[in-house]
């Protein structure tokens, strides 16, 4: 199309013109791709490299091979900090997924057209907009054994007081609950948008076939909510494995390190008063990355199939 259209242009410019469709994307992409490579992609590989060294972040690096990983292995065997973090990561992952059914439940509850429902929907979504730091603080006070609302309420029933964040066995559940609050709100909004798009004819057809309540939900509605469910899974899993803010704000990993997760433990090792052990921290980060890669690969695979139209 372009070659015959513009015969009177000089040689060089005609080469540019002829190839502009092939060149244009690269002109748009190159600077951004380079920028992204420098700040996001290369650092991933650099972290692998750093994990093979003993390094305080300033002085000379000392190559130690896989020794950092060996230490992690022993920490795992001895049920030390690394083991606790890994165990808590699994707990986070499993419990955080509760945000998906909980979000669906609230979405179903709010999917009506009564007066003022829009305001209700926004207010239910509200916790997601607040920073995790503030949510963490809010829940820290909520759990406080002396004046927290939780214990005041338990006191009414003659129960408690429970020091949720001071109890090694409860602390992770307490923090996950704080995390579930905004995450459920996110899943709710995904499902509310999804419910809007559900085909009304299929619902009518289902009603004619006598489907009602839970059966209708499971066989007619949920299959149509698949795109929303997929995104809910992606953001919830990534969110669970990224949990850092809540732990940093609510417990600093305590009591006695019992609420650590890999993301927090890594930070603690590499950048806190416990010392600057960059190599060891990088090894923990690589482990966390290895876990996440499984999920990332699966998400990309699903997206790729979608692209190809399977």
């Amino acid at each position: 199309m372009s070659r015959t259209d513009m015969p009177l242009i000089g040689r060089q410019s005609s080469w540019l013109r002829r190839n502009q469709i092939a060149l244009a994307p690269w002109l748009f992409l190159t600077p951004v791709v380079l920028f992204f490579l420098f700040y996001v992609i290369f650092p991933i590989f650099q972290s692998f490299n750093v994990s093979l060294y003993e390094w305080d972040g300033l002085g000379p690096r000392k190559y130690v091979g896989f020794r950092n990983y060996e230490y992690l292995y022993w920490e795992f065997v001895d049920r030390d900090a690394f083991f606790v973090s890994l165990k808590n990561n699994v707990l986070w992952l499993v419990l955080y997924l509760l945000a998906i059914p909980a979000g669906l439940l609230i979405a179903l509850f709010l999917n009506q057209t009564v007066a003022g429902i829009r305001l209700y929907k926004s207010l239910f979504f509200f916790p997601f907009v607040i920073s995790q730091v503030v949510v963490g603080l809010v829940f820290t006070w909520f759990y406080d054994p002396t004046f927290g609302l939780l214990n005041s309420l338990l006191g009414v029933f003659g129960l408690g007081p429970v020091n949720v964040l001071g109890d090694e066995n409860l602390v992770t559940y307490g923090i996950v609950l704080a995390g579930l609050w905004p995450q459920t709100a996110y899943c709710m909004i995904l499902y509310l948008t999804g419910l809007n798009a559900v085909d009304p004819e299929q619902i009518e057809a289902g009603r004619l076939d006598g489907a009602k309540g839970v059966r209708m939900l499971w066989y007619v509605i949920v299959p149509q909510l698949r795109p929303a469910t997929f995104i809910a899974f992606v953001v919830t899993i990534i969110g669970a494995l990224r949990s850092f803010d809540f732990i940093a704000v609510m417990t600093q990993g305590g009591p006695f390190g019992s609420s650590r997760v890999l993301a927090f433990y890594m930070f603690e090792v590499a950048l806190s008063e416990y010392g600057f052990r960059m190599g060891y921290g990088a090894a923990i980060a690589v482990t966390l990355f290895a876990i996440m890669v499984v999920f990332i690969a699966y998400f990309l695979w699903s997206m790729y199939r979608e692209e190809r139209g399977y």
Binding site: Q46, F267, M303
Partner: peptide, 24 residues
């Protein structure tokens, strides 16, 4: 390929970037 590089980078845990990005 480039598209998936951007998408994948977005899902990565912050901690794997922490040491090199701080250093950079």
């Amino acid at each position: 390929l480039i598209f998936f590089m951007f998408v994948a980078g977005n899902f990565v845990p912050f901690q794997i970037l922490m040491v090199p990005v701080r250093d950079l």
